[in-house]
């Protein structure tokens, strides 16, 4: 871009990311034995923090805010919310 046009108008380029995992006061824990792999937790997670790895459903604690929706919606009762303990 030419010199005159550098930063003349408000635009954003790099991705804005907050480590929302820090917000958590309770944490979802998953019992992989009980998990029926129905995917309910994945689609309802507001923060999009649930992912599948080696056919197991996992939570990305970097961004999970600990709202508890996954635990509430899980029909197999495979997720429970536990107190977040930070060292």
């Amino acid at each position: 871009m030419e010199e005159y046009l550098d930063w003349i108008a408000p635009i954003g380029k790099d991705l804005y990311v907050i480590r929302t995992g820090e917000w958590r006061y309770q944490k979802p824990e998953r019992d992989h034995e009980k998990c029926k792999k129905c995917g309910t937790c994945l689609i309802f997670c507001p923060t999009g923090s649930i992912y599948v790895e080696d056919e197991r459903y996992e939570t990305d604690y970097e961004y999970c805010k600990g709202c508890g929706i996954c635990a509430r919606e899980c029909r197999a009762d495979a997720i429970i919310m536990v107190e977040e303990v930070r060292e």
């Binding site: 871009m1 046009l5 550098d6 003349i8 108008a9 408000p10 635009i11 954003g12 380029k13 804005y16």
Partner: peptide, 18 residues
Amino acid sequence: MDYIKLDPKEPISVDPLT
């Protein structure tokens, strides 16, 4: 217009909170 634009080929945000 290349200093501010909306184009899926070059995704930027226009007018973030400043």
